[in-house]
């Protein structure tokens, strides 16, 4: 059965930081911009201390929120 489209996400692999995840999930983008974009979609990880720390279980969105049309 086909699932309707949902906002895409990933989780970190052991040892991965923002740059690694950006490289893996946004390979076709400029690396610096990719990290910036990735972080902007995951502000929930910046409300914690230390800010932006990635835990193994965290959901990391790899695109912005879907619009109603999406």
């Amino acid at each position: 059965m086909e699932l309707s489209r949902a906002r895409s996400f990933t989780t970190a692999r052991p040892g991965e930081e923002w740059a690694d995840i950006a490289r893996r999930t946004l390979a076709d983008q400029d690396p610096g911009q990719a990290v910036e974009a990735l972080q902007s979609w995951n502000l929930h990880l910046f409300l914690r201390q230390p800010r932006g720390r990635i835990l193994g279980c965290d959901v990391i969105f790899t695109e912005p929120p879907l619009t109603d049309a999406g």
């Binding site: 989780t11 970190a12 692999r13 052991p14 201390q49 835990l55 193994g56 279980c57 965290d58």
Partner: peptide
């Protein structure tokens, strides 16, 4: 049981939150 949100008494993430997908 596992938790993706809870913190301990030092306000640090509980151990289950350090688990990667492979462990779960």
């Amino acid at each position: 049981s596992t938790s993706f949100v809870d913190v301990d008494e030092r306000l640090q993430p509980v151990p289950s939150r350090y688990a990667h997908a492979e462990e779960i």
